[in-house]
Design a protein around this nucleic acid. Sequence first.
RNA 1: GGCUCCUUGGUCAAGAGGCUAAGACGCCGCCCUCUCACGGCGGAAACAGGGGUUCGAUUCCCCUAGGAGUCACCA
Length: 490
Amino acid sequence: MSKVRTRFAPSPTGYMHIGNLRTALYEYLIAKSAGGDFVLRIEDTDQERYVEGALDVVFNTLKATGIKFDEGPGVGGDYGPYIQSERRDIYKKYALELVEKGHAYYCFCTKERLESLKSDSTELGTGFNYDRHCRDLSKEEIQKNLDAGIPYVIRQKMPVDGTTTFTDAVYGDITVENKTLDDQVLLKSDGLPTYNFANVVDDHLMKITHVVRGNEYLSSTPKYNNLYNAFGWEIPTYVHCAPIMKDAHNKLSKRNGDASFMDLIEKGYIPEAILNYIALLGWSPRGNEEFYTLPELEKAFDIDGISKSPAIFDIEKLKRMNAEYLRRMTPEEFYKVALPYIDKALGGADFSEDVKLRIAGLIQPRTELLTDIEDKISFFAKLPEYSTELYCHKKMKTDTVNSLTSLNIVLEALTNGNGANIDWTSASLYEFFCGLASENELKNSQILWPIRTALSGKDVSPGGATELAEILGKDESIKRIKVGIELLKA
RNA sequence: GGCUCCUUGGUCAAGAGGCUAAGACGCCGCCCUCUCACGGCGGAAACAGGGGUUCGAUUCCCCUAGGAGUCACCA
């Protein structure tokens, strides 16, 4: 059996959507799980759709996810060029070969004629198929038209009777009647091939063994097979994938304003989580494990696990997975990815590396998206204005009155009492505050909650009273407790 | 409309004739707890409908319904 080769063949539209990325991932995994090659090919045969900088989007996304291509633009390979617009002459040659063999023909029909055929067919409510007007032109007529410089396309000559059956690795055998097959255009009048043609020619020439693509191509696959057969080429294994949906009725798409890979990164998701999540959208592993690194996916992936029905993209599950990825990082890894967000949250405030490391430790289990960080920790740099309502907490049995009492007790103990020289760490502060509570016949929470509130100025904080105190340091903590006392007095 | 495909909890999904129909996200409850989160435990929640085949169908066949794709000199 020949070496497995797959290809990712995006057209450069400047937007790498999630569905595309998943297709690339599956192609990559199919190749790598079999020790094969993964090829990147750019399908830019439609010059009108070309977008400046689109290639970079493709490159950057693949790079960010770790999906490396073995051949393609920039890295080369034995089957280049890998950009279709640079392969123009190749297609023409093969198109002519097909004409020669009697499987394709010149068509001189004008756009106007085709338009009117089309409008007729919509009126009748039937589908549009080219009426094969030019299918049986004589050699002389063709030559005359060519000599006269009349623009032409080359069309594929479909069989008229019988059926065509093809096998898809996901959907199984699919049979269609040949009479439903259109004599599709292979070579456009601008000399460039259609996708339908370029795709087949390139996949063959590049020795692609597994064609992975969206199932919107399912219905045109019989035409491709007729093309392979006309050339006498080996038909690849087809792997058609159901789409990723935004909801029950709409695909995820740029048009709907849905997030691209890069959008998700900007929203604070990390590439590993995104990749892991989309691998599971439309594919299911053998066991119950859901977390896979790319190398693990290479081992676990199999075509049998690909599902036939569309999958709705669930941002909640992605979020959860992202959170889990962040938690599973070592503290050092987390610190590294979180640092830009931490620095942003802390503004210009002067915090040592050590303190930032400890802040990271506090937020690591509490962060779902990296973009959550700023809001969670900005109070470290600047105490927000807050309402004394925050001191009232039913479960903690606190209100503004006993909170004031508690804060005064704490302030006194910390400045003049036996807490004045306390070792300023979370553990010893915790012990000390609990001691204060029992001395004054208070619940721990009646001491700790007011402190936590005074230190953070927030209803929730990434850590309790003593954890916040340790990070803020003694001076700042006392300062904030005083602010709290003033607020409660007023 | 023709053709093709799809249909298990709200979502992702396992299942490949006999199971109390997995697991995960989300949701609810309890526990843990210096708030929140994390973690632990538990719960509610599904085979689109109807016919067959079979001793027995989520699983095989047919029909219906619903949904999707396609019917371009776009990919």
